[in-house]
C-alpha cells in the first residue's frame, strides 16, 4: 500500500513539497514567536492573496494560458513587499505592529477579491490558494518550492545567531553595531517566502498555523531557542507528511488535515509533557549564598534546615 502511494508521481511531488514546507515553516515561525509576531504569517498570507489576484490580472492581460500562470510569482512579490512594508511601519513607530497587521489583513483580502473580479474571475478561483491544492503541484511549482525553501533554510539556519540576537534583545543588537534594520528585513522577507512556499500545501489561510503550532509544541518540551527550532521542524515534517498520507487514503482536505493534526499533537504534548517533567527536581534551585543581613542564630539554623529539605 505504501509502495502504491510512493510510486504515484502526484503523490511524490506532493510529499516532497510537504516535507520542505514542514521543515522551513517552523524555522521561520520560531523567529516570529520569538519577536511576538505570531500573526505576521497571517498578515502576509492575506497580502499574498492580493498578489495572486494581481498575477492573475496580469496573466489575463498578457493573454497567458493558463490564466493563473503568474499567480504564484504575484504572491511572492506581494508577500515580500507587504512584509517589508510592515517592517517599515514598525520602525517608524507611528502605528504599532499589531495595528499594521490588522490593516494588512483587511487590505489583503479586499484587494484580492476586488482584483480577481476585475480579472474576470470569481472569488471561487481564489479558493485553491486560500485552502491549498497540494494534489495539483506541478513540476514547475515543485522547483519553485525547492529553490525558495533552500533560500529560507540557508538564511534562517545560517544566520540563526544574528537573527536570535536581534529577535531576543533588539536594543542590545543595536548597541553591538549589528545591522539590525537589515536583519529585520531579512526575517520579513524570509517569512514572506515561506508563506508563498506553504501556500500550495496548506493554503494562505492556514499557512501561519504551520509556522506557529509546531513551535508551540516544541516549547512544551524544551527551554532553549536552538532546540525549540529543531524540535519544531521535526514536528512540522511529521505532521505534514502524515497529514498528507492520510489524505491519500481518505478524501479530506490536506491543508486542514495537516493543521488539525498539528493542533492534536499540541494538545497531546501539553497533556503529557507535565507528567514527563514532573519527576524529581534537578537539585536545590536556591543558590547557597550568604545573606545580606545578619541573622539571629535561630534564623540561621532554620535556614540550614530549609537548605537540607531542598537537597
Amino acid at each position: 500500500m505504501i509502495t502504491l502511494m510512493l510510486t504515484d508521481p502526484f503523490m511524490q511531488r506532493a510529499l516532497l513539497a510537504a516535507l520542505l514546507v514542514g521543515v522551513t515553516a517552523p524555522v521561520v515561525g520560531t523567529y516570529l514567536v520569538q519577536r511576538k509576531l505570531s500573526l505576521l504569517g497571517d498578515g502576509i498570507g492575506h497580502v499574498a492573496l492580493t498578489g495572486v489576484a494581481l498575477g492573475w490580472l496580469v496573466g489575463v492581460g498578457a493573454g497567458l494560458t493558463p490564466n493563473d500562470a503568474l499567480a504564484v510569482p504575484g504572491a511572492v512579490v506581494a508577500a515580500v513587499v507587504g512584509s517589508v512594508l510592515i517592517e517599515v511601519v514598525r520602525r517608524r513607530g507611528r502605528t504599532s505592529g499589531d495595528l499594521a497587521l490588522a490593516i494588512m489583513f483587511y487590505g489583503g483580502i479586499a484587494g484580492g477579491v476586488l482584483l480577481i473580479g476585475i480579472a474576470g474571475g470569481s472569488a471561487g478561483n481564489l479558493m485553491q490558494y486560500l485552502f491549498g491544492s497540494i494534489s495539483t503541484v506541478s513540476d514547475a511549482d515543485l522547483w519553485l518550492t525547492v529553490v525558495l525553501s533552500a533560500v529560507v533554510l540557508t538564511v534562517g539556519v545560517g544566520l540563526r545567531h544574528a537573527l536570535f540576537s536581534v529577535s531576543h534583545d533588539e536594543e542590545f543588537a543595536v548597541a553591538s553595531g549589528l545591522p539590525v534594520w537589515a536583519l529585520n528585513v531579512v526575517v520579513a522577507v524570509v517569512s514572506a517566502l515561506t508563506v508563498t512556499v506553504a501556500m500550495r500545501v496548506v493554503g494562505l489561510l492556514l499557512v501561519s498555523a504551520l509556522m506557529i503550532v509546531p513551535v508551540a509544541v516544541a516549547q512544551q518540551v524544551t527551554h532553549a531557542f536552538g532546540r525549540t527550532m529543531l524540535t519544531a521542524s521535526v514536528v512540522g515534517v511529521v505532521v505534514c507528511v502524515s497529514g498528507l498520507t492520510i489524505t491519500y487514503w481518505h478524501n479530506v482536505s490536506p491543508g486542514a488535515t495537516i493543521v488539525v493534526l498539528a493542533i492534536a499533537v499540541y494538545a497531546v504534548v501539553s497533556l503529557v509533557a507535565p507528567l514527563l517533567t514532573r519527576g524529581r527536581p534537578a537539585g536545590d534551585p536556591h543558590p547557597d549564598l550568604p545573606d545580606d543581613v545578619d541573622l539571629p542564630a535561630a534564623a540561621t539554623e532554620r535556614a540550614a534546615a530549609a537548605a537540607k529539605e531542598c537537597r
Binding site: 511576538k36 544566520l159 544574528a162 529577535s167 553591538s176 549589528l178 516549547q219
Partner: peptide, 24 residues
C-alpha cells in the same frame, strides 16, 4: 528583554559575541 521563546544562559551570552559585521 527576551522574546516569546525561552533561551538558555549560554544562548543569550553567546549573542554578545556578535557585533558589527560579525554575524556568525
Amino acid at each position: 528583554a527576551g522574546g516569546g521563546i525561552p533561551s538558555t544562559a549560554q544562548e543569550v551570552v553567546a549573542s554578545g559575541l556578535l557585533h558589527g559585521r560579525r554575524l556568525r
